[in-house]
Nucleic acid binder design. Structure first.
Lengths: 195, 195
DNA sequence: TATAGTTCTGGAAGAGCGTTCCGCTTAGTT
DNA sequence: AACTAAGCGGAACGCTCTTCCAGAACTATA
């Protein structure tokens, strides 16, 4: 989905500029919101505005690309963490990575839900990438006998998002502590949940 | 909250212009979204842009005012319907009125959740006005023995919003039918709810 | 009703941003 | 090295936001 399958292989400098633009857009979106001036993004990327418009004709194209880029980066972190840490630690680290993603993408969330049909496919992209990523970490931890089985990766993604997002208003530490609590719960948790 | 208590009573033509602007903004927001050009709104209201900016210096001020205006209109419809119809019919008509509000305000919703602190007070304004309005209709219908008691006005407001909003994507009729079903349920519904 | 004192209005003006367009640059090819 | 075409930059145009103030409109007072 992020790479198109057309016969045109894309020139090397063009690909470099696209990467710069995505990096720049990520920063600028975080700083000035999704409605930041196009020139600000182009300047930070070290390209002209024409180049920005060549690769991302509409604002939604850029927002979508940044979002997918971040989803990919977060998903790709899972296998890396898995081979560098024991299962529970990998899971814990990845969930913290995920909350970072949630916080930095909060500005994008309102744009995503704005009704623009260009964004319709993003929620399923989100689940399609992050679900399996988290799933593999969970499976590894369950198989190692270090945590109890949990309903589904999707539920956990959802729960963690609810847990950490509203905290952004207050102190960021709070969300982090709540998440640690939840991971503890996975390890030593009670055998029954409420109704 | 909508009227300030200052000693200055506001000149008659100014009040007239404010009303025109609110009407115009309501239409334009529905047609072109909350980011519609200021001139479009001013023209439709038959005033200059200067007048728009005098009364609503920031875009958020206008959005907030339109929202509150619509909430007020929806809440004020309750007592009127109550004296024109029997309790169940009044309830049904008001809920349909409420779904209209939800649909037309869908464009505003994303702006409302955009994180602008100017909008922080709106959710509680929404509940504070619509909760009692619906509450009085429910009480009347319950006392008349025509429907069974329901958890709380707030829950019903929430449920109806969930029921009718996602339907906007498909056919508007669907949400309407779902709502009718719910009202039927209130009247003849089962004695027990699930877990 | 006439007058004085305010408030309020309209739209021109200045600044800034989005988007397009096309001559020039540079990667890839022979 | 020379050629070809993809890709680049940024000037230019048009649209929008926002400010500002001379004058119109309203209200209070006599």
């Amino acid at each position: 989905m992020t790479q198109n399958t057309a016969p045109r292989p894309l020139r090397a400098d063009a690909q470099r500029n696209i990467d710069s633009l995505l990096d720049a857009a990520k920063s600028v979106f975080a700083t000035s919101g999704v409605d930041a001036p196009a020139k600000e993004i182009a300047d930070l990327a070290g390209v002209g505005v024409g180049t920005l418009y060549r690769h991302f004709p509409k604002r939604a194209d850029l927002v979508k690309a940044v979002f997918q880029h971040e989803v990919d980066a977060t998903a790709d972190a899972a296998p890396l963490l898995a081979e560098q840490h024991d299962p529970v630690m990998a899971l814990e680290k990845w969930l913290h990575r995920y909350t970072e993603f949630l916080v930095t993408k909060r500005g994008l969330a309102s744009a995503l839900h704005s009704g623009d049909p260009a964004f319709d496919a993003l929620p399923s992209y989100f689940l399609g990438r992050l679900g399996p990523a988290l799933g593999s970490l969970l499976d590894a931890a369950v198989e190692a006998g270090e945590i109890r089985a949990v309903a589904s990766p999707k539920d956990l993604l959802y729960a963690v998002s609810k847990l950490s997002l509203p905290m952004g208003d207050e102190e960021p530490e709070h969300g982090r502590r709540m998440l640690d609590l939840l991971v503890d719960g996975l390890q030593h948790g009670a055998d029954k949940t409420g109704c």
